[in-house]
Design a binder for these strands. Structure first.
Lengths: 98, 98
DNA sequence: CTGTTCTCTTTCCATAATGGAAAGTCAGAT
DNA sequence: ATCTGACTTTCCATTATGGAAAGAGAACAG
């Protein structure tokens, strides 16, 4: 047999996986809230977002809130599919049903 | 709410996750077979195994086969549980049922 | 209009992880 | 005693990840 199917390198790393998972449960999330949720610095979240955007998994909506500009993170359909595929791949791989 | 629950750093990296998954489907696997399955070099597999052993997820059984000594990899109960927990954590996180 | 503040981005580093090649180890074959 | 096969360990190079600090843009103060 060849190799085991690879996981999506964009979505697999813990921080990005957790972010995708968190975003999958809401319509959108504020940048600052996501940063606190992951427990990382602004710069780190920003860099992860850049990669996820490049892969088309996340979209950033900039809109004012309380006077100041805020950035809202939205998991795209593609990102949602990638997350789901990851979970499914893992289940298949592990042969775990429940 | 504090941060998102962390994934087990020992079992989360792709190579080790795939190895754990592969081992979860069999009673044991030969070192060489696992190496080919993952598509890595001897040294790399050996190093991953060292970490998984240290975590108690894998046990190595050295036994002769065809005259030469071979190493058999066995996923421990603990390793199996860790894999299962990982999958479940992911499911919970993603809120994906099917 | 200019300076300040808030909210991200980008740059600059430092550290850790991952991978391969090559050298090292060890048991069994010769 | 030596050689060979099957890992293991060491050495290096590359990449990833993280934070701090400097940048950039928008809105507000004055």
């Amino acid at each position: 047999m060849t190799a085991v199917p690879q996981f999506d390198p964009v979505i697999h790393p813990p921080a990005r996986l957790q972010l995708a998972a968190a975003l999958s449960e809401v319509n959108d999330m504020e940048f600052g809230r996501a940063r606190d949720l992951l427990g990382v610095s602004d710069s780190v979240l920003s860099k992860h977002l850049a990669q996820m955007q490049e892969a088309g998994y996340v979209r950033l909506r900039k809109a004012p809130l309380g006077g100041r500009q805020r950035t809202w993170l939205v998991l795209t359909t593609q990102g949602r599919a990638a997350l789901k595929a990851h979970v499914r791949a893992l289940q298949d791989l592990a042969g775990i049903v429940g």
